[in-house]
Amino acid sequence: MGWSFRKSKNIGPFRTAVSKNGIGTSFRFLGFRFGVSPDGKKYWSFGIPSTGLYYIKYY
Rank of each mutant, 00 (worst) to 15 (best):
G24R: 00
S8F: 05
P13A: 06
G35F: 05
W44M: 14
F29C: 12
P38T: 01
S50Q: 14
G47N: 07
S8A: 12
V18T: 02
W3Y: 05
K9T: 10
S50M: 11
Y58S: 11
W44A: 09
S45H: 07
R28W: 03
G12Y: 12
S26T: 06
K41W: 04
R33E: 14
K57I: 10
L30K: 14
Y58F: 12
S45E: 08
K7M: 03
T51K: 14
M1Q: 14
Y58P: 06
Y59S: 10
M1Y: 09
Y55C: 15
P49I: 05
R33D: 11
G31C: 10
I56N: 08
F27R: 06
G24K: 00
I11L: 09
G24S: 03
T16Y: 02
I11C: 07
P38A: 03
A17V: 03
Y55R: 15
G24T: 01
S37V: 04
S45Q: 11
P38M: 02
G40K: 13
W3A: 00
G2L: 03
Y54C: 11
V36E: 04
G35R: 05
Y54L: 13
G31P: 08
K57Q: 13
Y59T: 13
N21V: 02
G52P: 04
T16R: 04
K41L: 05
G31T: 08
K20Q: 02
I23L: 04
F34I: 07
N10Y: 06
R33L: 12
L30D: 13
S26F: 05
F34K: 08
F46K: 15
S19H: 02
G2R: 02
S8H: 08
T16L: 08
T25F: 06
F34D: 02
K20E: 02
F14M: 13
L53H: 12
L53S: 10
K9E: 08
I48N: 11
G40F: 09
T16K: 05
A17W: 01
Y54S: 15
I56C: 06
I11E: 14
S26I: 05
P49H: 10
K41R: 12
G24D: 00
S45A: 12
N21G: 02
G22L: 00
T51I: 08
G2Y: 01
G22D: 01
Y43N: 04
G12P: 09
F29P: 04
K41H: 06
R6C: 00
V36P: 03
F29I: 13
V36Y: 06
Y59F: 13
K42S: 10
S50G: 09
G47W: 11
Y59Q: 14
G52M: 09
F32E: 03
Y55H: 15
M1D: 10
S8V: 03
S26M: 06
K57E: 11
Y58C: 11
F27G: 09
P13C: 07
Y59C: 13
R15Q: 07
R6P: 01
N21I: 00
T25H: 09
R33T: 15
